[in-house]
Design a protein around this nucleic acid. Structure first.
Lengths: 383, 383
DNA sequence: TCTGAAACGTTCAAACTCGAACAATGGTTG
DNA sequence: CAACCATTGTTCGAGTTTGAACGTTTCAGA
């Protein structure tokens, strides 16, 4: 049966076709793959991956290079690339990061673009409206772009101005993992986003079903996802009649990097005071850090503290492996490209689409089993 | 639903169809199946399963791989020609009405089904959960239905039970112009719906731009659209800083048919008392009746009372022709079919999609021009 | 330019899967 | 009632996939 499509090593063998699909996903996400890295990741021999690369190169889908493969390159003169089709559209993508979360969005976008004879031009940016605008402008100035997929910083007046500017561009603009606020006149903008509130709710219900009756939330409000996660957590604990005023909900945004240890100690102390036995932690990197901190303090995960992460980027790497809410990043990219190309093909008669996608919950060791008694020594104060 | 683990004696040809349905179910759930595993599970020979896989591959429903089958893969070059086989899927549609609003939804669904070699089977129902369920069950009992598009009545416990039942069906179910409530565990249901709140807001902003400063709302809460329209009206007047408590907002649901004239007289009196010079009226039929009533009472439309209808089904027939918010009904049907067929093709790996489409505002005579002075004779009390 | 490490390609074997050919069975039809 | 058809199962030779082993090629650093 098909394993989870995470970077996590494959637990079961894949059919060869599925392995090549995974190879293509990694390639689209990162621009290149290594034979050695992929063999380790997929649990097969380097020879097998090398054979796959050869098959894909023969099909014109990759450029074979020493040690691995890259996305098809115009510099690659092998005969197979003569299959390279003319591109109907050029779609620009400006994403906040090229190494966390967004590579899979890009991978999905590239896969869909391939299906639709479009090409994707990616620029990395940041969580800053001015930088976002600079990158979009640079794309528009230097390439013949037919449509845009962006994940703009929408905070403050600079963010609002950016949205109005994007709305006024003469080409289709799709927001990925962003929703245009109702009170900003940006009615042409279409978007596709994960329903993070639903994802948070799913995590809380899972922890409830594992027996936890006090479930907290640890987020980082510098991330645009954060407010949705908190909203979902709130709605879910309300539905379960867990009093919010007795629940731990902390924001790490203003904690200086050097004070994270103290911050986590305060969080653990609040957990002890309130009897909280489970935490939803956004994002994965913070979940990994939090779990490591618990282990350092002798707090057993999941015995004394169950943890669910968010994003499912690195949760599987922790010890114990951390459960996580997994947004459908590949599909976000795919659907964004579908929105661009449909808009280009159909024009104004097509109604503006706004699409929410539901995430999955990936259950691992960090949240299995019911909580031990609250008096358990593992939740004692730090010394 | 967990079917029996061993085949029962049955008509052999019927059994082979059921076996292929089981195969497709496993495939959609897990992404791939092995010939060996499925033969063991279904108690037949591997050759039988292999023959089934070949049949399904020829129909374009699976990709055949060494040892089993996967969902159709873009890397599989052998299956693509077969995707054009006629009537790949049968899609059932159960709609509340066959003569208002829904015919265009069905039309859009049929157009998309034609593009995708699917066939649509329609049953009319009503705004009643028990009737909705009877019609769905009748469809399922008498036809081999692969997916469903429904617009169920979701009010009360009967409506909630219907949603849970729909959620548990083993085939894809799409809600058209309905959104499953967040507090009902119906997480598999996908939907496509018009953003009626946005539509109402668009109408209010149009009337504001035409110079109206007091804008009311007349709805009919027996319609599921109504609550969204009221919410949009509220948000829009809040954004325009029109005090809601000084605004006319009336519900016609409980007005007996014989008392409509008196009801409209009361509404006009409230308008006079509050200086309301424009009304958003849901639905079109009520807008036509309201405009006719205004004319009967000597209230000039749009001079003394501007009116915008909703649904754009019959608004154009009135004299004067009535502006209306037009939901993208054809696209609702189209997108619903796209959701069904994508679910059938991609199975469980595809995230649940929830899609909002923006309506258009069609401006006609009934809302053009600024309001005349409040003292205008045309808004005098009825005699 | 040389060298060692890494990567690649070829060969062969093991394990597993496929499918043609043929047979058996039960239902349908003339 | 016999002939025909659809469906399913068995057998066995052919085919596919993967990895080990080993010789060859490539690349980066000294």
């Amino acid at each position: 049966m098909s394993p989870e499509k995470s970077p996590e090593p494959a637990a079961r063998s894949l059919f060869s076709l599925q392995r090549r699909e995974r190879l293509m996903e990694q390639l689209r996400a990162h621009g290149s793959v290594t034979v050695r890295g992929l063999a380790a990741e997929l649990g097969v021999s380097e020879l097998t991956i090398r054979r796959d690369v050869n098959i894909l190169a023969d099909a014109g889908l990759v450029s074979r290079v020493h040690g691995g493969a890259t996305l098809p390159s115009p510099l690659d003169r092998s005969a197979s690339l003569s299959r390279h089709q003319a591109n109907r559209y050029a779609i620009g993508m400006v994403v906040p990061s090229l190494d966390y979360y967004w590579p899979q969005v890009i991978s999905g976008a590239r896969a869909e673009a391939e299906d639709q004879q479009a090409r994707i031009v990616v620029r990395g940016s940041s969580y800053d409206a001015a930088d976002n605008r600079r990158q979009v402008q640079a794309l528009l100035d230097t390439q013949n772009i037919d449509g845009l997929i962006v994940a703009p910083d929408m905070r403050g007046e600079a963010g609002h101005e950016l949205l109005r500017w994007l709305n006024a561009l003469p080409i289709p603009v799709i927001l990925a993992e962003r929703r245009s606020p109702a009170d900003i006149p940006a009615h042409r903008l279409e978007w596709v986003a994960t329903d993070h509130a639903f994802g948070a709710g799913m995590a809380i219900r899972h922890l409830w079903q594992e027996g936890h009756r006090k479930i907290g939330c640890l987020t980082d409000s510098s991330s645009p996802t954060s407010s949705h996660v908190v909203r979902g957590w709130r709605q879910a604990i309300a539905a379960l009649r867990i009093p919010e005023e007795e629940s731990v909900s902390e924001d790490s945004a203003r904690v200086p990097a050097g004070e994270r240890t103290a911050h986590f100690d305060r969080v653990l102390e609040m957990c002890r005071d309130t009897g909280t036995s489970a935490m939803l932690v956004h994002s994965d990197t913070q979940a990994v850090a939090f779990v490591q901190h618990c282990v350092d303090r002798g707090v057993d995960v999941p015995g004394s503290m169950a943890v669910v992460g968010y994003d499912d980027e690195v949760a599987y790497l922790a010890e114990p492996a951390i459960s996580a809410v997994r947004p459908p990043k590949q599909y976000v990219g795919r659907v964004a490209v579908q929105l661009v190309t449909a808009r280009l093909a159909e024009g104004r008669k097509r109604p503006v689409h706004r699409i929410q996608l539901n995430p999955d919950l990936i259950v691992r060791e960090s949240s299995l089993g019911s909580p031990r008694a609250a008096a358990d020594a593992g939740l004692a104060s730090t010394t």
